[in-house]
Nucleic acid binder design. Structure first.
Length: 390
DNA sequence: CCACATGATTCTTG
DNA sequence: CAAGAATCATGTGG
């Protein structure tokens, strides 16, 4: 299931994808997972007051969230103060009922995990470092596509940096809001202390509660970010399977090499690099191509004879038309017609009556790279192919 | 829409 | 680890 989502490129909002291209604001990430909207999949349980059934902690969170949204909008001081007073009052109530809630912060392991992941993804780390690139290469380590796929690569990177910037903005915002809020609460408490005794302990507890609350919110932010990164990553990985045919030029270049080295179609690392450059593809693509080609050629030699002839001819003629003639080593510079001389050049001269086909001889002569396994029984190697190159 | 071609991935092997 | 083999998924032509 979960077959290959549409993901037809650049759809900013396909599926439930990171809707970040829209507003780089506070709500972009939250759209993925809004802190105030509870999800009931066990995923983030444990972040909020599940213990002792202190449901009101969650309510406080909601209220806080709302307040923060409100204060984000322009509200004049007086109103804001009023609201804050109210909040403080609620907090006081809350702190009464939470008397024996855990006072210390056990450094939630989940939070640590989130932090680690964000760091690994290069989201939380230092600015614009190689973090993103590292993450990508780690993600694709098995694939073996190094400096390539620059298309998806850059796409991924830009998306990741979007996430990162949103994350940082949000984090900063929360932090700022937290200190602001704390200050306000302190001020209010100070004011209250004129009319009633306010113990330092109470203040301390207040601050503690506020910080915990904000850190919960931050955790949720981190979680949302992680989710976004995961989605992005899985999509990126899926996208790798997207296939596009090589250009005609590329195929020609590869075929030329292949057929001119038919006796040993295993390009060295250098040759691969050269081919890759020449064909505008990557080294691993060259490897893939040769892997596929060898096996498919071997599987059904007959099918490739025409092609073989064609390229053998091309090579023999030293390149047909102004095509980029590769620096294929020893490009059979011998005469135009005597096609038998060169070692590598094999000419698929198909069976001229019982005679072994020339290409087979050629291959055999120079080391049979496919181990001369019994060609698949069914694959009648010398099918009719009467005509051949003129 | 189907069949085949083809690039990519995954698993096995030596 | 590279090559082979099987398989997947998309591209393409009829």
């Amino acid at each position: 299931m979960l077959q290959q989502q549409p993901l037809t490129g650049n759809g900013p909002s396909n599926g439930r994808g990171l809707g970040m291209s829209g507003h780089p604001g506070m709500h972009a990430l939250n759209s993925v997972h809004h802190p105030s909207q509870r999800r009931s999949d066990g995923g983030d349980s444990g972040l909020e007051g599940t213990e002792n059934g202190h449901e009101n902690r969650r309510d406080i969170g909601d209220i806080l969230q709302q307040i923060m949204t409100i204060t984000d909008q322009s509200l004049d001081e007086a109103q804001a103060k009023l609201v804050l007073t109210l909040i403080v009052f609620i907090f006081q109530l809350c702190s009464l009922s939470m008397r024996n809630a855990q006072e210390d912060e056990p450094q939630d392991p989940q939070l640590v995990r989130l932090d680690n992941m964000l760091l690994a993804e290069g989201v939380a780390g230092p600015e614009k470092g190689g973090g993103a690139a590292a993450a990508v290469s780690a993600a694709t380590s098995s694939g073996g596509m190094s400096p390539d796929s620059s298309l998806e690569h850059s796409d991924y990177k830009s998306k990741l940096s979007q996430i990162r910037s949103i994350y940082h903005t949000e984090l900063e915002k929360y932090e700022q809001a937290c200190t602001e809020f704390t200050t306000h609460v302190m001020n209010l408490l100070r004011e209250q202390s004129r009319t009633r005794p306010v113990t330092p302990r109470e203040i301390e507890r207040m601050v503690g509660i506020i910080h915990r609350k904000f850190s919960t919110i931050q955790t949720q932010l981190k979680q949302s970010t992680c989710e976004a990164v995961m989605i992005l990553r899985s999509r990126f990985l899926d996208a790798r399977r997207k296939r596009r045919n090589f250009s005609k030029q590329a195929t020609e270049g590869l075929n030329e090499y292949f057929y001119s080295h038919l006796s040993n179609p295993y390009p060295s690392e250098e040759a691969k690099e050269e081919l890759a450059k020449q064909c505008g593809i990557t080294v691993s693509q060259v490897s893939n191509w040769f892997g596929n080609k060898r096996i498919r050629y071997k599987k059904n030699i007959g099918k490739f004879q025409e092609e073989a002839n064609l390229y053998a001819m091309k090579t023999a003629l030293g390149g047909p038309q102004g095509n980029d003639s590769p620096h294929t080593p020893n490009s059979t510079g011998s005469g135009s017609f005597s096609l038998s001389g060169s070692a590598d050049l094999f000419l698929g001269v198909p069976p001229v009556n019982g005679e072994q086909s020339a290409y087979q001889m050629g291959v055999q002569a120079n080391g049979n790279w496919h181990g001369r396994n019994s060609p698949p029984s069914g694959a009648s190697p010398h099918s009719d192919h009467s005509e051949n190159s003129d």
